[in-house]
């Protein structure tokens, strides 16, 4: 097996008596989509925060591109090429769609301290931003204010911003939420291709999408990974059926 792009090694995190992460081990191989599923309150968001930065685990490490990043900031991890999309959109709502995409390109370029040249006239940044927008079919909405986008379009813009970073790995927190049937089918097709650019750690509630996309699935329950395996293995796993999919799934 090749070296994983991202690997989570024995992470634990407690809030008082609550064990939000309990000795979690997880890795992301090149070219794969690894889905993380689990019931509400299983600790998925807490785990994501520890992987992407913003929350420090009590014990255990996160390795990204072969480097221990456990103590690095969100910014440093993003610079290394870890792109994250949010469950609750964290876009700049007052800005246009294009400006949000430009911001991503600006972050990737790493030179935000320029004060005189209009960012909209920076063709290098615009190319990156517009390519990313057209890949998620948002280029027609480029001059629209982000707050005017539908819930599903904001999701797509989140993905577009992540694309501008040209990342080495994606962490996507429920990108399908609010998309509707055709929207989530489109995104499923898109993510299917995207995995060859960079592997995706996908947190998702939409089981159709998960079963269609995932190379591997990990099931998180009460902060513990109770099973990791292929789609068929997870479907057949008795503990998973009991804990999550429901007895008759």
């Amino acid at each position: 097996m090749t070296d994983p792009v991202l690997s989570v090694r024995g992470i634990s995190k407690s809030f008082g008596a609550l064990k939000a992460s309990d000795d979690v081990n997880l890795d992301l191989q090149p070219g794969e989509i690894h889905a993380l599923i689990g019931p509400n309150g299983a600790g998925k968001s807490t785990l994501i925060k520890q992987i992407a930065g913003g929350l420090r685990p009590d014990s255990g490490q996160v390795h990204f591109l072969g480097k221990d990043v456990t103590l690095l900031s969100t910014v440093a991890r993003a610079r290394m090429g870890l792109a994250r999309t949010f469950q609750i959109s964290s876009l700049a709502m007052e800005d246009t769609v294009l400006q949000n995409a430009l911001l991503g390109a600006l972050g990737a370029q790493g030179k935000p301290f320029r004060f005189f040249h209009p960012v909209l006239k920076d063709s290098a940044l615009r190319d990156i931003a517009e390519t990313a927008l057209s890949r998620v079919n948002l280029l027609d909405h480029a001059t629209m204010r982000t707050s005017e986008l539908s819930h599903g379009q904001r999701r797509q813009l989140e993905v577009a911003v992540a694309l501008t970073l040209n990342p080495k790995a994606f962490i996507m927190d429920e990108p399908m939420a609010g998309l509707g049937t055709s929207g989530s089918q489109n995104l499923t097709t898109f993510l299917d291709e995207l995995r060859h650019e960079a592997p995706i750690l996908l947190v998702e509630h939409d089981m159709d999408a998960v079963f269609a996309l995932a190379d591997r699935i990990s099931v998180l329950v009460y902060g513990k990974i109770i099973a990791t395996g292929s789609v068929d293995e997870i479907r057949a796993h008795p503990e998973v059926r009991r804990a999550y999919l429901g007895e008759d799934a």
Binding site: T74, F86, A92, E94, Q99, L106, G107
Partner: peptide, 18 residues
Amino acid sequence: LALNAARQSSERVETIGI
């Protein structure tokens, strides 16, 4: 652009590496 985005969402700006 970056400053204005930071006003609206700190998290967003951190996630893109600034």
